[in-house]
């Protein structure tokens, strides 16, 4: 992606290395939450790792570049949407099976990637929510310091 703010952030060496590493961190976060019902990990850990990949990008390239990649308002919307969908999954369970947040998708076969009913869905929602939320916390705490310091 074209960088409109070349003077912000850290030096060229850090930016070049970041270009290689940030995708690996992001993919590791995706792996952790997709395999949350099979291996150690899950939505919360994957979400924190994805937030860390955005933090990595912010530290190397500056906050304005990250705002170009994924807008702050989009992050707010994604975060709120994920919490809303989590409640919606519960309400679907209520109408389909009779109890709030009951598994309505079947159990599937043990040890398969697509199994365990609604657990992967909830993992995904938690991952989006935690990832966006923690990045926003980082953003606000860090930018508050810069505005105060002038």
């Amino acid at each position: 992606m074209h960088n409109r703010y070349p003077n912000e952030g850290m030096s060229l060496i850090v930016k070049t290395i970041t270009r290689f590493t940030v995708w690996l961190i992001f993919l590791f976060g995706l792996y952790i939450f997709l395999h949350g019902h099979l291996t150690p990990g899950g939505g919360f850990a994957g979400g924190v790792i994805i937030a860390l990949s955005y933090v990595h990008l912010t530290l190397a390239y500056g906050r304005n570049y990250v705002n170009d990649v994924l807008k702050k308002s989009t992050m707010h919307s994604l975060e709120a949407l994920a919490s809303l969908l989590a409640v919606l999954v519960g309400i679907i369970g209520l109408y389909a099976m009779g109890h709030f947040l009951q598994n309505f998708m079947g159990v599937g076969q043990l040890h398969h990637l697509l199994s365990a009913g609604y657990i992967p869905v909830m993992n995904m929602l938690i991952c989006v929510k935690v990832g966006m939320g923690l990045y926003l916390v980082f953003y606000y705490l860090a930018s508050y310091h810069l505005e105060e310091g002038k």
Binding site: G36, H37, L38, T39, P40, G42, G43, E79, A80, S83, A86, V87, G90, L101, N103, G106, V107, G108, Q109, L110, H111, S115, A116, G117, I119, M122, N123, I126, K129, V130, G133
Partner: peptide, 29 residues
């Protein structure tokens, strides 16, 4: 058998104790 999840920790926090996780999400929000 009951949840179909290989990882028992995930099966507890996202199936048997899902209300707890939902409350956790609310706290974070």
């Amino acid at each position: 058998v009951e949840t179909g999840a290989q990882n028992i920790v995930t099966s507890v926090i996202l199936n048997y104790r899902i209300y707890d996780t939902l409350g956790e999400l609310t706290v974070l929000f």
